[in-house]
Amino acid sequence: MMPERMQTKDLRVYFGKTEAVKGVDMEIRPGAVTAIIGPSGCGKTTFLRSLNRMHDNTRSARVTGHVYLGDRDIYNGGMNPVELRIRVGMVFQRPNPFPTMSIRENITFAPRRHGMRRRSDLQDLVEEVLRQAALWDEVKDRLDDPATGLSGGQQQRLCIARALAVRPKVLLMDEPASALDPTATQRIEELIFDLKAEYTIAIVTHNMQQAARVSDYTAFFYMGELIEFGETDVIFTNPKEAQTEAYITGRFG
């Protein structure tokens, strides 16, 4: 299973008359972690959510331009949203396990909808993705307990396992550790590091140390525009743009 590349061309997102993302051309490289940073309201989450067509269900939102997954244009007739979201998974800011389901059901829910029926297959899948999410040892004896009984950090790793269970090529993470304590945050970061061999990962974060620690590439957004994109080392040590430097050294944002 190969991770896939994503690419945007002149991507614009409007909410009503407000332009929240203003013509972004950017590449999200396969098998690497790309961090998207920038001050609040800079359009980084809006950008991320356009990569799996999450804006489709917001009445006021409108997306123009192109987003490619591999060589298929996901907006202009290349792919329907259901097919897309199976390939491009998402982890949200606050852990959102389904409270009426057990740990096991949270994971098997989507694969079953997509046609996986055999008990043994589902059982194997549960173990595999929980191991990938580094949660197996903590929950293997209580798979049928409600998912809401887990701690916040465990819930978030469950949500990552749940996203992996549909076997995506790309994983989008929207500030996945912002609601967690430092220990839980560290575990999520280690997990991201382990996952990048098999998945293309894009992570939005407002925590610059986190971006520096986990990512290979960094994109700096400001006022809906992509100001600078490059290897993380370079962005953090030797940025080309004055705005990027000002932001990462903490002079604004």
Binding site: N57, V82, I86, N96, A110, A163, A165
Partner: peptide
């Protein structure tokens, strides 16, 4: 985020 959580897994509306 409950609804979006399901949609993000490739569920239909």
């Amino acid at each position: 985020d409950q609804r979006e959580g399901a949609l993000a897994l490739g569920c239909t509306r």
